[in-house]
Design a protein around this nucleic acid. Structure first.
Lengths: 127, 127
DNA sequence: TACCTATTGCAATTGAATTGCAATTAAGAT
DNA sequence: ATCTTAATTGCAATTCAATTGCAATAGGTA
């Protein structure tokens, strides 16, 4: 009797996938709350954890802010503006073979990698 | 008049550089405390911020844990074990030109990038 | 030496994320 | 269809990282 498909879990996943971005839990919860105000924020936290372990969603840990989640299956990279804090998706071919190269060199079991660029976005670099 | 060279700031930087790793602030503070128990943790927090803005140290934001700092000037990548939480340096040629490619493609001003591998370290993958 | 302001240390605060617990419920077993 | 049990939920309380307000201190320049 493993995991269960609760309506809360379904809503969390579907809302995240519908958003097609990388919301913070606060942002995701606000979106969920519109249609399902009875779902508690704690439940959103817990379900995202479970979904992450399942590999259904990905979590991003970026400096100076709460974690973010994304339901987009296609792996991609990110840019965070150190001035305004905005996060952008970077559409660029992902480097697939470096995972394997770290595996063989270090003897680790590599699941994936995150690549985050830092700097100033086009708006902030003008200031 | 700009920034000042306080003894606290010097000690924070020197201790971090001497450690040659990527300690959490708690770990760094413990090391500082041995010789300089009068320095407050708040001061360590604040100085690391300043030093980071100066480009003298780098900050790592990794999932499931506090930020880490490193004073090592040579850029490199990291691996975080999702089971035990250990963080390892990954000695691998850094990809220099992707910063420029993101700059030109998106019009951002890219300072640097972080590459973090996730998975299980050699000990934990046996469990 | 005197002045100005960055910095310090302490305590209090903020904010993200987790946890304990009683009530609920999904889903397999009977 | 009902029973059973373990996963899940919601709430409140808690933990932990990190920041902030403020009075006192101390760089560094004039």
């Amino acid at each position: 009797m493993g995991q269960r498909n609760t309506i809360q879990r379904t809503i969390v996943l579907e809302t995240l996938m519908r958003m097609k971005s990388h919301p913070t839990i606060e942002e995701l919860y606000a979106e969920i709350y519109k249609d399902h105000p009875a779902i508690s924020k704690t439940t959103v936290y817990r379900n995202l954890r479970v979904l992450e372990e399942n590999g259904a969603v990905r979590r991003l840990s970026l400096p100076d802010g709460p974690d973010r989640y994304e339901g987009q299956p296609k792996p991609h990279y990110h840019f965070k503006c150190s001035t305004c804090g905005s996060v952008f998706d970077i559409d660029m071919p992902t480097i697939g073979d470096i995972d394997a190269s770290v595996e063989s060199k270090y003897g680790f079991e590599v699941k994936d990698h995150d690549l985050v660029f830092h700097g100033k976005c086009s708006d902030c670099k003008l200031l």
